[in-house]
């Protein structure tokens, strides 16, 4: 009887194991939840020109960013993030499908994991080295006399897009890989036996069955892209400033902290909307 009680004590609800997680929860509350609330609060305070704030309610932070300039930055950020997520999915679906059924599955997966774990700055640098104004291709063109002065391949929106796709493609392949791997192989065999072409199998069997994987792959690219800072800072031009650059500029150069907090709050809200639309929207469609 004592044994029985002990067992139910430890495995049923309220087992006392909760205390193991308490430090985890307290840590995230102090260093994540509270700071995020502080940002929201800061966006409604008065700017101190020394940097920092004065404890007085004000919506000047929002007024400072309520103009066409910032609207353009927000729209550009959403569009560039959306396009890069879409391109990543278009590449990632066939690639992960191929890897799951390949003879060299483990090796190919490793080839995707390595860039996933490679420092993102050196991956950005690789493209600057190749496409930059003093880069490899310009050097080749100049030396062979094809052009007289360098060609500006980067420092524009196309370069930002290219390098976002390059950076985040592994983020899209990995969740798709695991969702395709979970599918029953027999599903495809049955479809083929019933006379489906490969094309039909891909579009009618594979895609509908990995909808959730596609949604999470999309979110894994779209949301980090929304907050990207280094990529537009290093390879973007005058017209490719994104939300991340504006936050940093307001914090470090303009020293307008309420404005920085206001932009961050809007980014936070955009993210929450994206998560609700994609994750919950995806789930609802699934259950219907």
């Amino acid at each position: 009887m004592t044994l029985k009680r002990k067992r139910s004590e430890v495995l049923s609800s309220g087992s006392g194991y909760e205390k193991y997680g308490s430090v985890y929860l307290i840590w995230l509350t102090i260093f994540f939840v509270i700071p995020v609330i502080v940002i929201l609060a800061y966006s409604f305070l008065t700017r101190d020109y020394q940097g920092g704030i004065i404890l007085k309610f004000s919506i000047q932070g929002y007024k400072d960013i309520f103009n066409l300039n910032y609207l353009t930055v927000f729209i550009r950020t959403v569009i560039i993030s959306f396009i890069s997520a879409a391109i990543c999915i278009l590449i990632a679906v066939p690639v992960s499908y191929y890897i799951v059924y390949s003879k060299f599955k483990d090796f190919l997966l490793l080839l995707v994991i390595i860039p996933f774990w490679t420092n993102s700055l050196i991956r950005i640098y690789a493209w600057i080295f190749i496409l930059g104004n003093n880069g490899l291709i310009n050097q080749l063109l100049l030396n062979s006399g094809v052009v007289n002065s360098y060609v500006k391949f980067i420092y524009n929106n196309a370069a930002v897009l290219l390098i976002l796709v390059y950076t985040y493609l592994p983020f899209a392949i990995l969740p798709l890989f695991s969702s395709i791997e979970r599918l029953e192989k027999q599903l495809f065999e049955a479809a083929m036996d019933l006379g489906c072409t490969k094309r039909q199998v891909f579009f009618k069997i594979l895609l509908p069955n990995i909808k959730q994987g596609i949604v999470s792959a999309f979110v894994f690219v779209f949301i980090p892209a929304l907050g990207t800072y280094a990529v537009p800072e290093l390879v973007g031009g005058k017209n490719s400033r994104l939300i991340g650059n504006e936050i940093a500029r307001q914090l470090t150069i303009a020293r307008n902290w309420p404005a920085a907090a206001a932009i961050s709050s809007i980014l936070l809200i955009l993210t929450i909307i994206a998560v609700i639309v994609f994750i919950y929207g995806g789930e609802k469609r699934e259950t219907r």
Binding site: V36, I223, P224, I247, L267
Partner: peptide, 11 residues
């Protein structure tokens, strides 16, 4: 799920 930059700025 939220972008890293928000964690950085808020901290």
């Amino acid at each position: 799920t939220i972008p890293d930059i928000i964690i950085g700025v808020s901290l």
